[in-house]
Structure formats: C-alpha cells, structure tokens
Design a binder for these strands. Structure first.
Length: 477
RNA sequence: GGCGCCGUGGCCGAGUGGCUAGGCAACGGAUUGCAAAUCCGUGUACCGCGGUUCAAUUCCGCGCGGCGCCUCCA
C-alpha cells in the first residue's frame, strides 16, 4: 500500500512519490536558538520525528536534515542584550534543544546544520539570483524580486492582490528601499546599532563590477542554502510548523527554484498545525509556554513520552489543545500500554510471533492507518481494539504464545513509529533488586505491612510493583 | 477586507450517507491481603435552523460560536 500524505501545495492528500526510491530526502525547519523551545515547538519537532520514523519503518532510506537557525534578528538582539557573543549565546540554546531531543527520544538527524556555517553558500545563491535577474541591490540590502516569480503566494494560497493589501498590519510601510512590498531581503546590510559585531563581508558581482556588502543573511535564504548543501537542489519532503508556510517556505521555494532553475524544489510539503494551550495560541513572544523541563517537573521522567502520546492522539492536520489534564490522561494510557507489553512478553515466552490471525489483522490496520496520512489516532485505536481482545484471552488463559509474541511485536512497532518508550528504559539496580526480593519474602510470610512499606519505598525510587498470580510485575515511572 | 480550518457523549479525539472507532475519567460488579492492572455491565454523542435524499452526524445553504494565516512566530 502506498504512502499518502497531505501536500500543502496542492491542498490534497496524495501519494508520496520520492524522486529516487527507496532513497528519501527530508528537510525540516528547526528552531531559532534564542531561548528554550516550548511544547508548541516540540509538537512540530515530534511530528517531523514521526514522519521520519514511519518512512524508515516502511523501508525507505531516509536522509534527514534539520537545521538550527543561529543568526537572525532575535538571536542578535538577545545575545547582545545578554552581553554574550552570538556564537556563545546560540550554542547554549542549541545545547538545550539537543538535550530536549534526547529527553523526547527523537531520532538523531543525519545533519544538524547551523546557518552561520553556510554563509559562503548563501553568497553563491544570492549571486545566482542577481545574475538571473531575480534579485536587486538596494542601500539597505539585497532583495528578492517577487514580481520575477509568477507563482509567488501559491504555497499559502495567497493571491498577489491579497499580498499587496497587507491587511495583517505587519507590513512596514516605510521600507521604501524595496521595489515592491512583497519583496523580501536576501542579505541585510550591516546596521552597526543593531548588529554590533555580527557581520560577514561577501563580495558580489553587480553589473560586472565587484561589490562587497558587509552584512548578514536574511532568514529565508538560510534554509534554501542548507538544503542545497546537504540534500541537493531538489528534495522529496519538506516539513514545518503551519506558520512557516508563509512567508518562510514560500520564499524558500521562490529563491531555490529561481536560483537553480529546477522544479520542483520540493516534491511534497507537509505542515503541522499549531498546539494551543487551554485554547489559546502560544509563542515565544508570550509567556504562556511550557518547556520539556516543565513536563519532567510536573509529570516525572516519563512526562516527555506522555506528551508524545498526547500529540499522537490528534491528527497532525488539526490543532491540538494542550492541558495538564490531557497530559495525565495520556500518561495513564501509556502506563497501561507498557503494562500490557509486560504481560504479553511473559505470555509469549520464547515463541515465534504468529503471522496470521487477529494480531496480523490489527497490525495491518495499524499500518494502513499510518500509511494514510499518518492517522496516529486511528492507528492506536487498532492497537487498543486488539489489546482488549488479547486481555480477555489472557485472562482466560487461551492466548496462544505465538499471538502474544506477535502482540509484543505490534506494540514494539507502534513504539518505534511514535517513540513511546514502552519497553523498560532501565533495569533494577542491585539495591532495588534486594528490595524487590525482600518484598517477595514479606508477601510469602503474609507480612502485609512490610510488603506495603517496601512497595512504597520502591515507588519513591521510580520502581512500580504490581502483584499478579505469577509474582511481582516491575515497571518504571 | 482576503484565504482557510473547526464545532462529536464528563474530557480528549477518529470516522462514515444507512452496519453504535478508540482512549482517559466516573459508577456498579468479578478478581485481589491491600493497591494497581484486567474482565463484565452502565451513558441511545454528533452546535442551531432549513434543504437534498427512502435515509444525514456525514452532502448543500444560512445562522451562531471558536481558531489560524495574510512578510521574518514551530
């Protein structure tokens, strides 16, 4: 069954056709490193992660690149305010971001390029745009000439007229250096008051004459150039948060196709809708945001994984409304799934997984849901439906070991696809094992007070103990 | 003003022109030293009003309500 994804450009769900299967090139816009990433950012990054995981599970050889934006207005402004060099400042927040990826269990990208390491490539692309008549030099920088790119606005379904209207009020009318209000900056001339010592001095050729322009790159050119450097002039899949559709991705598209003359720049665009908090939009410019550290502080070590499950309970094409109650519900579901895996693994023993029957059907349903535009809620429903039947059989003692083994494999596939960490993430330490053994002895001696005390002590160490007919079941919080 | 999305049982959330997704929470029962998990049972959900249809939660129109984007916010 082919993979079908919603394509932003056509606004339809269509078959995903990479140019050179089984190889797939994927680029996702990463964070601007000027502060901690909030859970809204993470909902997007986790979406990218699921896309990459699923492509790999489906046998594609994915080359995944996601960048770090370490030079633009806010990084310069805030690093200067902090009295740090741009590099020291952005590296600090980049480390915070990478730590977050670790806590969420994100796949390691094949490359994490930094914009500041690709300035030479930016010079080259801007030169190509100048040579081809798609860019022009003004006093305060070099601009992309939107009028030279007829389909401009297509990605966001915006017409030239609506762009001209600029009804959002965000267009600065005083930018008279530009030929057209929609033109966007490729290279910003140095502004000593705002930029301090952040500057490069590339030399361009303008009208046959060399011209050095001290300054720094515009935001949009950064991604175009990193894509070109690490994945090529044309890629299969480009991912981002919904806000990046316009202008950022539209500008990337225009620049790249105009500079290389190759179409399409991206075969398939996908965007994750925003996460809201208690029904309201969040952003770094407001104070209503939570970080991965907040998830850990309020929901424990498994908080980030519970958040992953929460995000997976909604399709990426619909906004998700974050609440702490919702996170707790997701955490409860995740615990139940992890417990189920323990029971099934025990029932499976060393049996080989069954290849047919209800489990196989559930697995096929799970995969079909994922293949159809990454319907994560539907995919998990297929797992839960089978699990309910399996629990019945398990209670009756009629679940074949081969089915239990296949059930473990199903849970592991869901785990692999969504990054849920259902498998125990650690083992018992010697001290903890001693407590578990002591509790077993206490139970055998019917010393219930001591058994309960030991269970509480283990819980305080993150070890959860449940009693069953076959003894104690261990899991970790 | 332009473009677009959404309104499903206590909460979250799929989906479909007729065959009651799923999860979490709640209540009763079984099981259990207790707890948890698990099992059995319990709630006749589809914003309102019209229309199309044998039949609409699902299609169309209007209304009400919420939300996003429209030049550098994931």
């Amino acid at each position: 069954m082919p993979l079908r994804f919603h394509n932003t450009l056509t606004r339809r769900v269509e078959e995903f056709r990479p140019a050179n299967p089984p190889r797939v090139t994927v680029y996702a816009c990463g964070p601007t490193v000027y502060g901690p990433a909030h859970i809204g950012n993470w909902s997007s990054f986790l979406f990218f992660d699921v896309v990459v995981r699923w492509l790999r599970l489906r046998g594609y050889q994915v080359r995944f690149v996601t960048n770090v934006t370490d030079v633009e207005d806010k990084t310069i402004r805030d690093s200067r305010a902090a009295g740090e060099t741009l590099s020291a400042f952005t590296r600090r927040w980049e480390a915070d971001y990478l730590e977050g990826r670790r806590l969420f269990g994100c796949v390691v990208a094949d490359a994490f390029p930094r914009a500041t390491e690709h300035v030479d490539g930016m010079r080259d692309m801007i030169q190509a745009l100048l040579d081809r008549g798609h860019a022009y030099v003004a006093e305060d920088g070099i601009y992309f000439r939107v009028a030279s790119f007829p389909t401009y606005g297509e990605l966001a379904n915006l017409s030239a007229e609506s762009l001209r209207a600029g009804a959002s009020g965000r267009v600065r009318a005083d930018e008279y250096e530009k030929e057209h209000v929609s033109d966007f900056v490729l290279w910003k001339a140095w502004d000593p008051a705002a930029d301090g010592d952040v500057a490069w001095t590339p030399t361009f050729t303008v009208d046959g004459q060399p011209r050095t322009m001290k300054g720094r790159p515009g935001w949009h050119i950064e991604c175009s150039v990193m894509i070109r450097a690490l994945l090529g002039d044309q890629i299969d899949l480009h991912l981002g948060g919904e806000d990046l559709k316009f202008p950022h991705h539209q500008n990337e598209l225009a620049q790249s196709e105009a500079a290389t003359g190759k179409q399409p720049f991206v075969r398939h665009w996908m965007h994750r809708r925003h996460l809201l908090v208690d029904g309201a939009k969040m952003s770094k410019s407001k104070k209503n945001f939570y970080t991965v550290q907040d998830l850990v502080a309020r929901a424990g070590p498994s908080g980030p994984r519970a958040f992953r499950y929460l995000v997976a309970t909604a399709h990426y094409g619909t906004p998700i409304d974050f609440t702490w109650a919702g996170l707790e519900a997701a955490a409860a579901t995740l615990r139940n799934l992890a417990d189920a895996r323990v029971r099934l693994a025990k029932a499976a023993g060393a049996a080989a997984p069954a290849k047919a029957g209800a489990v196989a059907q559930a697995r096929a349903a799970f995969e079909a849901r994922m293949d159809d535009d990454l319907d994560t809620p539907g995919a998990m429903a297929a797992v839960q439906e089978w699990l309910h039947e399996a629990n019945k059989a398990l209670a009756a003692g009629t679940l074949p070991a081969a089915d239990a083994a296949a059930g473990v494999a199903l849970l592991d596939e869901a785990d692999e696809a969504l990054g849920l960490a259902l498998r125990p993430t650690r083992t018992l330490s010697a001290d903890e094992q001693a407590l578990v053994d002591a509790r077993m002895a206490a139970r055998r001696a019917k010393q219930w007070g001591e058994a309960d005390r030991l269970r509480a002590e283990l819980a305080s160490r993150g070890v959860l103990v449940k009693d069953s007919k076959d003894g104690q079941e261990i899991s970790f919080s």
